[in-house]
Amino acid sequence: MLNIFLIFLYIGSIAFGGGWAVVGIIKDLMINQNYMSINEFKEILAVAQLTPGPIAVNMATYIGYKYYGLAGAILNTFFLVLPPILIILAYNILRNKINIKKDSLINSLKLGTAVLIFLTLYSLGSQFIINFDVRAIIIIFVTFILLVKTKIDPIFFIIGTGFLAILVL
């Protein structure tokens, strides 16, 4: 039980730039440590997006609930959000003692975030390239273009593609 909470404490401490940076890490850790199959992961990822709230927090709640019930849901969520709380507390204590160049730090964190999000993309998407799944690649590409070019809420794409998949897959 402690293991899964520690995993989410770790995930919470590296999630710079928001939840998408760690979705790939959640997938790899959960599947490699045999907590779930790829299909269960897809279920959790979809539910986390179709409910209000931040993606990583929702996934933590769902995974905690799935394995250890209500207490698991509360504790898992708590461990995920603990790192920023600790950092804010530490910052308040150390504020006058340390001197950090803020712009450089934020730029550097953005670089780190870019690496993490690329890895999320790789972790989620590389299977479609490796299997040369043309239909999936086309859908991914079209979704991406429409998301860049229009202001349609991503949730409509998620639901729409879900129904499309029932028809064509």
Partner: peptide, 12 residues
Amino acid sequence: GCYIATVGLTSL
């Protein structure tokens, strides 16, 4: 299907 769209969203 949701998963495939998620990959598109991650690309964004």
